[in-house]
């Protein structure tokens, strides 16, 4: 009885296997015949992102909350060394005013600098340090600034380019058609190397495409029997965090490093939408 059950189960799975196999086969045959009529060109596109360099400023609620935590901590804390010093200074001053110079001398004062002076010196040093920091955000941004990799340090940026060989000049992510013999990831690595040259070091995040976009070529420029392109996006992050700028290759007309908001306004709407599906927002 048990053997019979097993065998029947085996038979069922076997038959399922057969049917699935035939399904794949029919798919294949359809695909190949389909391909002859209308083929899609496989295109790899690299989404080169620069992660944020500095933390974004606190939002109003974050500021409020952190302020509350600080006051609560101050309420519960013991007096610090500095607060003790401030108090000691006050007593010393009082004694001096009342004329008890001897008592004042009894108070051991380790240095001639008062606590207030020390505070002032610290504030000065902090201001000096803050002045040396480069501004995180340029107030008066010209379109030219968008070409710099080191802008909007608290946001993540995405590289968009204008390729030369394409007639329709539109901002896109750097892309190139897939050539037989390479994996799609290699296609994207190739396009990053072509566009940015040696000066930009990137790390690709995985072998799988992170997004997809499909569009049809206009009938006039359909070539090699392709009716359109299926674009597969691969995400990669910029590694060199030094201040050097990227030298771009000759096959791009123009380039920009854009924040996610700017992407929405610069790219074609449907294109921007498919990209926004896989971008990790920095807000």
């Amino acid at each position: 009885m048990a053997a019979a059950i097993i065998s029947s189960r085996n038979l069922a799975s076997f038959s399922r296997f057969l049917t699935s196999g035939t399904k794949i086969n029919t798919c294949r045959s359809i695909n190949t015949t389909h391909n002859n009529l209308c083929r899609w060109q496989i295109v790899g596109a690299a989404c080169v992102t620069r992660p944020p360099v500095v933390c974004p400023p606190m939002t109003p609620i974050e500021q409020q909350y952190s302020g509350m935590l600080t006051t609560m901590e101050k309420e519960l804390a013991l007096k610090s060394d500095h607060e003790m010093r401030v108090e000691k200074d006050k007593i010393y001053k009082k004694l001096l005013l009342s004329g008890d110079v001897e008592d004042a001398a009894d108070l051991d004062r380790t240095s001639a600098q008062t606590a207030a002076e020390f505070e002032d010196a610290c504030t000065l040093e902090l201001n000096d340090f803050n002045a040396t920091l480069q501004p995180v955000h340029d107030r008066n941004e010209t379109p030219d600034v968008r070409k710099r990799l080191h802008r909007c340090l608290e946001r993540s940026l995405v590289l968009v380019v204008k390729h030369k060989q394409i007639d329709v000049q539109e901002w896109t992510l750097p892309h190139t058609p897939w050539t037989p013999g390479e994996t799609l990831r290699q296609t994207c690595e190739r396009v990053v190397g072509d566009v940015c040259g040696e000066s930009l070091k990137v790390k690709f995040l995985g072998n799988a495409p992170c997004g997809f976009y499909k569009y049809k070529y206009p009938k006039t420029i359909r070539k090699d029997g392709y009716i359109g392109a299926k674009v597969f996006f691969y995400k990669c992050v910029v590694l060199n965090n030094k201040q050097q700028e990227v030298e771009f290759g000759t096959d791009v007309d123009d380039h920009q490093w854009l924040t996610h908001d700017e992407l929405k306004h610069t790219l074609k709407q449907s294109y921007a939408k498919s990209i926004s599906q896989f971008l990790i927002s920095d807000r």
Binding site: P209, C210, G211, F212, Q277
Partner: peptide, 9 residues
């Protein structure tokens, strides 16, 4: 989005 891209691929 990644699943969709893999399916298409």
């Amino acid at each position: 989005a990644r699943e969709r891209a893999l399916e298409e691929l």
